Simulated scan of single mutants.
Amino acid sequence: MADRPRLSVTSVTVGSPDPRASARFWAQLLGHRITADDPPGPDEPAEGGWARVSPPAGVDGLTLAFEHERQWRPPVWPARPGEQLATQHVDVHVRDGDLDAAVAWAVACGARLAEHQPQDDVRVLFAPDGHPFCLFL
């Protein structure tokens, strides 16, 4: 391929029933900051709008954006036929190696632990809006 343009991923946008609440959860969980918090438009419900969470100033990393999804249904995990699928999830590296402490922190922030856990070094949790995410060593 000739002269490929320079491209880089900077953010991931996730549908949410309440984007500003999702941003608050992820900002608290990760120690990041909310860098955009747009209110709902005139035709949106009160929990509509859009929000973005970014790493602290001077720290590289992806931003997470959340946009209102009117038809939101939380996914089922593990997947079951005929149920809403989790089309994406966020993987969070536990850098200090204390998975139990990371799970306790996530739960204190509002997450809940999934019943099914597929691996010893990974914990599957659900954000308050129902999106699954993984903490891993």
Rank of each mutant, 00 (worst) to 15 (best):
D18W: 08
P17H: 02
E44V: 14
S11R: 09
E67H: 11
W50E: 06
A51F: 03
P19K: 03
D60L: 08
I34H: 09
G48P: 05
D18F: 07
S22A: 15
P45Q: 10
P40S: 14
A65W: 04
R70A: 15
E44N: 14
A65M: 09
P45W: 09
T63F: 03
D60F: 04
Q28P: 02
L29F: 08
S54Y: 02
T13L: 12
W26F: 14
A65C: 12
G49T: 10
D60A: 13
G58Y: 04
V59H: 11
A23K: 10
T10W: 01
A21Q: 12
S16W: 04
H32A: 13
G41N: 08
W50D: 01
F25R: 09
D38S: 11
L64R: 04
T13F: 06
R24Y: 01
D60Q: 06
R24Q: 13
Q28I: 00
G49Q: 10
V59M: 08
G49E: 10
G48H: 02
S22H: 07
V12M: 11
R24C: 06
A51P: 05
R52L: 10
I34E: 14
S22W: 01
D60G: 12
F25N: 07
R33E: 15
S11E: 07
V12T: 13
L62S: 01
S11G: 07
E67Q: 13
F66L: 08
S54P: 02
G31V: 14
L62I: 12
A21D: 13
P39W: 12
P55K: 08
T63N: 10
R33C: 12
P56F: 04
A46N: 07
P17V: 02
G61N: 04
G58M: 02
G15F: 03
H68D: 01
G58W: 05
E67I: 02
D37R: 11
E69R: 07
V53S: 05
P39F: 09
T35R: 11
T35G: 14
R24N: 15
R20E: 11
P56G: 05
G49K: 07
G41L: 08
P45R: 05
V12W: 03
A46P: 14
P19L: 07
A46F: 10
H68R: 09
R70K: 05
H32L: 12
A57I: 03
E67A: 06
V53R: 01
P39L: 15
G15R: 08
F25G: 06
D38V: 12
E69D: 11
E44I: 10
V12E: 06
T35F: 13
R52N: 04
F25Q: 04
E67S: 10
S54A: 15
L29C: 11
G15E: 06
D43I: 03
F25Y: 07
A21L: 00
A57W: 03
S54D: 11
